[in-house]
Amino acid sequence: MTRLANLLASIGAFVLGYVQASITLISIAGRSFRGIFHFRGRAKGEVLNQMYQMGNRSLVFVTVTLGALGMVLVFQVCLQINKVTGDQSQVGPEFIKGMIHAFVPILTAMMLATRIGAGIAAEIGSMVVTEQVDALRMTGVDPIDYLIVPRLIASTVMTLALGLFAMVVVILAGAFMAHTSFGVNYNVFFIFDKVLPGDMIIGVSKLIAHGAAIPIVAGYCGLTATGGSQGVGTATTRAVINASLSVIILDFIISAIGLATVQKVG
């Protein structure tokens, strides 16, 4: 009987912890979005600085990885088509469409979730455990306005910019691979008829949503760090896992909404 009670109590504590964490996360998200309009709450030039840091750190990483993935993908598709029909005229248009509304947004965001997310959590987490955040609060600074909001704006803008850039890179890399390995003509590959406005809307919405989710989740993990450098390590790991997870979940939700509204299949 006591074992059952203990079990129930620990399940209850677990659920309660989860609910509390969700409430904190949602409140941080709400305060962050409101904080976008508190121009005096953040340091001058901090948004640009963060944008530079994030873009600079991620451009090569995203370009190389997504370029390589684009080539591998086109290579495999062409290989399979060669075995079946040999008609490669549809590879380009379908590839371009898929890249824009599905492949590039989630992959760019997953890469940035590790790169940007880890950076944010480590930075803010170490400020928490060294009492710098308390020192900020003592001077009347809201840590959300001061630390998270600039990162939120920068990450949203840079994820969108990097994502759009990655789409171009992936499509060029795919075309190059199709042309050199399978002799697909560039003007057969570059056909954008299949890309409808709905695809563009979905791709861009995903990039914006993911770009906003990463700093909020990572910032939450950083702000709730406890203990010393070990706590910062834990916060960083949590940030990467949770930011990636939230990207996957958001991607799924936006895909579903998109399919039901703006996207035409076929």
Binding site: T130, Q132, D134, A135, M138, G140
Partner: peptide, 16 residues
């Protein structure tokens, strides 16, 4: 209230 208080934290908490 915090404006009325100056604080030296135990590990200094200088902004790095």
């Amino acid at each position: 209230i915090r404006r009325k208080i100056g604080m030296l934290f135990q590990n200094n908490a200088l902004f790095d």
